[in-house]
Design a protein around this nucleic acid. Sequence first.
DNA 1: GCGGACATGTTGACACTGGCTAGATTGCTT
DNA 2: AAGCAATCTAGCCAGTGTCAACATGTCCGC
Lengths: 206, 206
Amino acid sequence: MTVKESYHHGNLRQALIDAGVALARAGGPEAIGLREASRRAGVSHNAAYGHFADRSSLVAAVADRCMQELGLLMRRRTQGIAESDPAAGAGARLNALGRAYVDFARDEPGWFRTAFGAPPAHTAHDRLEAAALPEGHPFRQLNDALDDLVTSGVLPSSRRPGAEYAAWSAVHGFAGLLLDGPLHDMPPSQADQALTVVLDVVSRGL
Amino acid sequence: MTVKESYHHGNLRQALIDAGVALARAGGPEAIGLREASRRAGVSHNAAYGHFADRSSLVAAVADRCMQELGLLMRRRTQGIAESDPAAGAGARLNALGRAYVDFARDEPGWFRTAFGAPPAHTAHDRLEAAALPEGHPFRQLNDALDDLVTSGVLPSSRRPGAEYAAWSAVHGFAGLLLDGPLHDMPPSQADQALTVVLDVVSRGL
DNA sequence: GCGGACATGTTGACACTGGCTAGATTGCTT
DNA sequence: AAGCAATCTAGCCAGTGTCAACATGTCCGC
């Protein structure tokens, strides 16, 4: 009874975000429109303004959901990994995170672009403290993986500071070049090879 | 006399691109509009369609110029470097290229976003053959620097294949995270430190 | 030199879309 | 019955893309 299809339909905000997520999936952040989202929510184009100050607020909310989606994929790809050797496990997990990141960008380019297309809403306005990020946030998973590398003795702790930026930059950059950049139409098999090199360089360099 | 302020002003196409470049500088690719560019070129909004099929064609032309601009900065930053030791020189040059790349993104975010915001016009549609790129193209400069690393004996040639993707991804990703991503408001001094780590990881890992 | 192609740009209008605002209206709650 | 929040109807403004008719400059053949 809570969610009625009545005049006040009770959770328009969520419905708008859902519609926005679908739009973003198909066409990236530019495809998110208040009018179109309202249309899909079965509501007049103006009702949206009761829940979002303007278009960019909706986009920000959708971007958050896209970031969560990325975090979910990364979680799914790493939770099965548990080698006998803890060091090998930590390394494999970092690797899997990187591949998940790039796969997400390739499989859901619209979401990926949306997640990183606009200054994020609630994350990272002062500093990007890993501990302050919501559970499951991609950046937090990365930091955890790097910490595991340190505790398992693979990564000397003197090298730990800043390592998150190096690892993140590498996969983020590769994804970006693949999606919107000059690597746009690199065939998948070749892209896999190139990604392997990228990940190798990072693990060797950390 | 060639370029008159007359009725046919002779190089409207260039004028439109120039206006587009200015718009992109201030507001990124979304800020490039046919109407506004025409207005700035002192021309009716309809004349533009004689030179560009649609908005995205103009954006593509502007993006090319932005890419050239990046190439120019990279050139400027490396041409002074000539250490006594050729190996040290090659390393320093690669490093300078990376810093130039990120500095460009920070100093000219609109141009940077434009350069990489849309599938490029003339470059890289089949494969991105380094040799086929125009003189001074950023990717070509990167490849040359890596080749120098090989000839000067720093980089074993077995590691050369794919190295360009690793190096490019790292700086491109860092720039992206800094501009549009979660590192959006990292203070410059901290960003410099982080970039140093990124570049170190790459040189060590190559 | 003259006269007509032809390219280039102009004026003005139109359909469509999207963002945003104002003022009424509906229906739940108290 | 009153108040309030959510939604609606209507409208303004700006941008893209398109069309048609017209003006102006250049160039080529005669």
